[in-house]
Design a protein around this nucleic acid. Structure first.
Ligand SMILES: [Mn+2]
Ligand SMILES: [Mn+2]
Ligand SMILES: [Zn+2]
Ligand SMILES: [Zn+2]
Lengths: 138, 138
DNA sequence: ATGATAAATGCAACTCACTTGCAACTTGGA
DNA sequence: TCCAAGTTGCAAGTGAGTTGCATTTATCAT
């Protein structure tokens, strides 16, 4: 069976503080990538307000442990989503309303090998995001 | 024959000022995407110093006219490259030295159609960038 | 050529995402 | 229970990018 996020944190010598658990809970509940500011807002609504800088430090740490992934959608701020225990996938975002939809697919396995052969790079990541207009904003 | 960038600017009612022409010259000479700061640096070296804000305003305008494309490589700042008259393509960047290499390919035509069918979005753009380690940094 | 007008520029001040320094406060293990 | 390491919050800092505004410049009609 798979190691849980809390197990990974313990394995990484991290402490399970109250703010940290609250941040993690929000990330795990979110099915789409969210911003640091949105995490802080949700914490405030849940009367568990945590300083913004603590959210920043926690998502940075979670990235280092490869438990969350950054998703850059050219909005000025980054979004983050849990990757631990979830399928690798991509997103599409509406240029009108900003809506984000998960695309549970990745066509890049074969292409990655081709690019490695061509460039001699050792590829360890890629970003693939689509942009367009959703049915409502069309 | 294709319309030149200067033609597009005139068609867009833009003036051909000295700073603007200098910025355009640097963008057109650059085969890889460059940052606003790098453009300003090159201008300074060429003794044609132009205010940073003027460079920002010009790349924004060139984006609106679809003459340059933004390339977001998660470095904190955006890069821009001329797209007018050039093939659509993607990039790979080394996580060690930051080196960027053009990948003159795009595997996304068919996938775009599939995603449009699945999501009902009208897709008008995508980003695809690879990250990894170049032979020297391996 | 000249002058009118609209656009573009440069400077300074500003915003916003994100980072850093540091003292005070948890956490988890001895 | 005590302690050291890790974490937190606050305040201040950084750096990319934006905005307001007075001045300058390009273009075009005369
Ligand atoms: Mn997702
Ligand atoms: Mn390129
Ligand atoms: Zn929409
Ligand atoms: Zn390298």
């Amino acid at each position: 069976m798979a190691e849980s996020i809390l197990d990974s944190l313990r394995a990484g010598g991290k402490k399970l503080t109250k703010p940290r658990k609250a941040i993690l809970a929000i990330l795990e509940q979110s099915s789409l990538p969210i911003t640091v500011a949105e995490i802080a807002d949700q914490l405030k609504k849940a009367r568990a307000a945590v300083d913004l800088v603590t959210v920043y430090r926690n998502v940075a740490m979670l990235q280092e442990l490869k438990l969350v992934n950054p998703v850059g959608l050219h909005e000025g701020q980054m979004r983050y989503e849990v990757c631990h225990g979830r399928e690798h996938h991509h997103h599409i975002q509406c240029r009108g309303c900003g809506q984000i939809v998960d695309l549970m697919l990745c066509p890049l396995k074969k292409l990655t090998e081709l690019v490695e052969r061509k460039t001699k790079f050792a590829i360890d990541g890629h970003v693939l995001e689509f942009f367009g207009w959703c049915p409502q904003c069309r």
